[in-house]
Amino acid sequence: MLDRRLFLIALAALSSFACALAATAGDRMPYTQQEFEDAQKAGRPILVDIRASWCPICKAQKQVLAKLLPSAEHADIIVFEVDFDTQKDVVRAFGAQMQSTLITFKGKQEVGRLVAVTKADAIKRLLDSTG
């Protein structure tokens, strides 16, 4: 019985890890602590996008990201979306003061942060910091 439980736990962990690895260029997925940690452990370049549906700056950032993320140089970046209004604990954990916050990670290391910036060149430099 114990072997079966260990097998199921290992299978669940492997499945979660595989999901983080399977994410492709510019994939936007809702933030979960487990998926984020799996992506960090895998050494993936990460963008955390703290946004609100009502935020015009967030919408402008999303348009810029839609143009930048498909490029080959940003092909490995996984994007985690954090809802500013419903995930307050996550927002606080990242030290964000407001929506429209973009944070990049290279594995476990935070490598860049922009707040309320919509200029494509600045956002590109932020994405480049994950490389």
Results as ranks from 00 to 15, higher is better:
R44D: 05
R113T: 04
L11R: 11
D89F: 00
F17E: 12
T86A: 06
V91G: 05
A13Y: 09
T24D: 09
K59L: 10
A122D: 15
R5W: 15
P45K: 05
L127M: 03
I57N: 09
W54F: 13
L69C: 04
I46V: 12
E73N: 03
A18H: 10
V117K: 10
A66K: 14
A52G: 14
M1P: 10
W54A: 10
R4C: 00
A75Y: 00
I50T: 04
A20D: 11
E73M: 03
T130S: 02
P30S: 13
R125D: 12
L6Q: 13
A42F: 09
L2C: 07
K41Y: 04
L6C: 06
D38M: 15
V91T: 09
L14P: 02
V117S: 07
L47W: 04
A13R: 12
A13V: 10
K106V: 01
K124Q: 11
D121A: 15
A122Q: 15
S71N: 14
V79H: 00
I57D: 11
L47T: 08
L8F: 12
G26T: 09
F84M: 06
V111E: 05
L14R: 12
A18S: 12
T101I: 03
G112H: 01
I46G: 04
A60V: 00
I9Q: 15
I50N: 09
L114K: 13
T86S: 15
Q97D: 09
Q33Y: 11
Q40P: 07
A23G: 08
M29P: 00
A72K: 13
V90S: 07
D83S: 12
I46M: 01
A72H: 11
A25P: 02
L2Y: 14
A23Y: 10
A93R: 12
V117H: 06
G26K: 11
M29V: 15
C55W: 09
A60T: 06
E110G: 00
M98A: 15
V117W: 00
D76Q: 14
R28D: 02
L68F: 04
F105L: 05
S129H: 04
T32K: 08
S71M: 14
A96P: 01
A120I: 05
C58S: 15
P56Q: 08
Q99R: 06
A120D: 10
A120L: 07
W54E: 06
Q109K: 14
D3M: 14
D38V: 05
L8V: 08
P70K: 06
F84E: 05
G43F: 06
K62M: 08
H74G: 02
S53Q: 04
A66M: 07
A12C: 07
R51Q: 11
Q109G: 00
Q61Y: 03
V64Q: 01
M29G: 08
R125C: 03
L65W: 12
Q34W: 05
F36S: 07
V111D: 03
S129I: 04
G95I: 11
P56C: 04
V117P: 03
G112V: 00
K67A: 14
L11M: 13
L68K: 04
P56S: 07
G43P: 11
D27Q: 13
D89M: 04
T86Q: 09
A22S: 13
M29R: 15
L11V: 12
R125A: 12
A25N: 07
P45R: 06
G131V: 01
D85V: 01
I57Y: 10
R125F: 02
K67N: 09
L8H: 13
W54G: 06
G107K: 05
